[in-house]
């Protein structure tokens, strides 16, 4: 379990990094935290010819809070989001709560938010969050910068819409107003493992009725997905145990996951039901 040989470039600027990528295309791979990539390289499941290290690029370790959105830079580590205090409102709470569930402390210390999204594991907290909030991924190359919406970004397991010459330089997330309620629930066998199934919810309530509902699921498809069925059940109803149970059932009835070593497909459906209900309950209390 030793990696294959590669060339190593420690980029000192984004310009340098993207010009190397532009030259080498998919022969090169960007490394930030490396907490998934290096493990895959140790298994020789990933074997980039060149590794472009962006850890020394200035300006990427920034959380840029704007009026309606926040941009999380490519070198922002999980741990910083977990510790919180920078992103206001319910979004900050959700980042802290979900961030606490990313791997273990040493992984969170080094791994990055954007790296996790670029890795595109459909059971990753940050991928599910990106789907939940329709995040926009800022892709930078020598050709310039473009923003890719979440629903286009996550192509399939470990595959994104990033071109080989692009770097994910930031992820833009909408800030959530105070009348949003966020909830998160995931099920994993052991502390710190990737979730088998995860649910994340953001619910807006006005006058005792749900006016906007977002429900996202991880671990049920090749991409993190929104549950439009659950969202449709929720909007217009009063929050409460019955509403949540109905939404959970709707979510469960509309997923077609695959089974794996952790259980058959039916088991993931069970977990969707349980996690959606729990994330809603955590978001809104028993109602």
């Amino acid at each position: 379990m030793k990696p294959a040989s590669f060339d190593y470039v420690s980029a000192s600027s984004i310009d340098q990094a993207v010009s190397v990528l532009s030259e080498l295309g998919d022969e090169a791979k960007v490394i930030a935290g490396g907490q998934s990539l290096v493990a895959m390289m140790n298994f020789r499941l990933a074997r980039p010819a060149t590794l472009v290290d962006i850890n020394r690029v200035p300006g990427l370790d920034v959380i840029d809070v704007g009026a309606d959105s926040v941009a999380v830079g490519a070198l922002v580590r999980h741990r910083r989001l977990e510790l919180g205090g920078e992103v206001p409102g319910p979004l900050g709470d959700l980042l802290a709560e979900a961030g606490h569930h990313v791997g273990h402390l040493p992984i969170r210390t080094r791994g990055t938010f954007c790296g996790s999204i670029a890795h595109a594991d459909p059971a990753s907290e940050w991928c599910v969050l990106a789907a939940l909030l329709d995040a926009r991924m800022e892709a930078t190359s020598t050709r310039g910068t473009r923003l890719i919406p979440a629903e286009e970004f996550f192509v399939t397991v470990f595959t994104t819409a990033l071109e080989p010459d692009e770097i994910l330089t930031a992820v833009h997330l909408p800030l959530l107003s105070e009348n949003h309620h966020v909830g998160f629930a995931e099920f994993s066998r052991r502390a710190g493992d990737f979730a088998i199934v995860m649910a994340m919810t953001a619910i807006e309530v006005a006058d005792g009725r749900i006016t906007d509902a977002r429900v996202a699921l991880g671990g049920v498809a090749a991409q993190p997905t929104r549950s439009s069925a659950a969202e449709a059940v929720l909007v217009g109803r009063a929050p409460g145990a019955e509403t949540f149970a109905d939404a959970a059932s709707a979510a469960a009835e509309n997923v077609t996951p695959h089974g794996d070593v952790h259980g058959p497909a039916e088991y993931r459906v069970d977990l969707v039901r349980a996690m959606v209900r729990r994330s809603l309950t955590r978001a809104l209390g028993e109602g």
Partner: peptide, 11 residues
């Protein structure tokens, strides 16, 4: 006795 097996028994 994995969670999945337990669910299979009581589902």
């Amino acid at each position: 006795a994995t969670p999945s097996r337990i669910r299979s028994l009581i589902r």
